[in-house]
């Protein structure tokens, strides 16, 4: 969620059980302003919190001119000193997926190790080679944050537009969804590049607007119960929670442009989802 809306928006997503303490909120209000100035970001978002054994990671996201491409993540333990996370690459995600298991420790220099035994040759000549994969927790954090944003970041339809120069920008004339629109999952989109190449029928395409509909719909996600949408805070706020990454909460107040999402959880994907529905 935008750092400017942090003060009131935390109340709206508190239904999931986690909020920020008053101390954390005040510190963030100060430090994010400094962060924005130092890193020359256009916008700073408070992304969320990943709970660890020893410490919790607070994550902030800075955005540049292109809202979708120019994203940088930073982490902090005390909400004041921020450290830049390395950009997540495919090979890093692969390694993290293999080696890092269980909860976060809360120590960025902690090393996860995974020993993989590879067999080379055939028959009796086979040589067992041990392949050790080492991943630091900082890399794991970078990969996890990136994956969460790839899989479950949510925006309402129309909140972002793609300009003719392929720049993704905030739609300044976005006035919010109506109550009936906000009650349907197909008015919410993944804030990533289109991945689902499912061909749509001409009938479905009729209502699409290439300026706004350049992202995937939440309602197309597999399995079908990956999300729940509900009105909370006296039925005034539309709240969406992910079942895949437990802890991700999105809010949108209908008829206003206010929206945002936050992740507060242990940073593990819910792999048991198919059993749980």
């Amino acid at each position: 969620m935008d750092s400017n809306s942090l003060l009131y928006a935390m109340e709206l997503v508190a239904g999931s059980g986690h909020t920020l303490t008053v101390e954390e909120k005040t510190v963030l209000c100060t430090s994010l302003v400094i962060l924005k100035k130092n890193f020359k970001f256009n916008r700073v978002l408070f992304w969320g919190k990943i709970l660890g054994f020893k410490n919790d990671y607070f994550i902030a996201q800075g955005r540049g001119e292109d809202e979708m491409q120019d994203q940088k993540y930073l982490y902090s333990f005390n909400c004041m000193d921020w450290y830049l996370l390395p950009p997540a690459t495919d090979s890093m995600i692969q390694e993290v997926f293999k080696a890092a298991k269980g909860r976060f420790m809360g120590d960025p220099s902690y090393v996860y190790e995974d020993v993989e035994i590879q067999r080379k040759g055939e028959g009796e000549e086979a040589i067992a080679e041990e392949l050790v994969i080492k991943v630091t927790e900082e890399n794991r954090l970078a990969a996890t944050v990136y994956q969460i944003d790839q899989e479950v970041s949510v925006v309402p339809r129309g909140a972002f537009i793609k300009s003719p120069h392929e720049l993704v920008q905030v739609n300044l004339s976005f006035g919010g969804l109506t109550y009936s629109e906000a009650g349907k999952l197909d008015n919410f989109l993944h804030f990533t590049k289109k991945k689902n190449m499912k061909k749509k029928s001409i009938l479905e395409m009729a209502d699409l607007n290439p300026v706004m509909d350049f992202m995937d719909l939440l309602s197309d996600d597999i399995p079908k119960g990956s999300w729940h949408l509900r009105f909370e805070c006296a039925n005034r706020v539309c709240v969406i929670r992910s079942h895949l990454w437990l802890g991700l909460t999105f809010y949108h107040i209908p008829m206003t442009p206010q929206h945002g999402y936050i992740y507060i959880g242990d940073g593990t994907r819910n792999l048991d989802l198919p059993f749980m529905l």
Binding site: E11, A14, G15, G17, T19, T21, C233, A234
Partner: peptide, 15 residues
């Protein structure tokens, strides 16, 4: 609860 960063939100808790 608010001090430890847990809760439902003030208004909701009042309800």
């Amino acid at each position: 609860l608010e001090q430890i960063g847990v809760g439902l939100g003030r208004e909701e808790l009042q309800r």
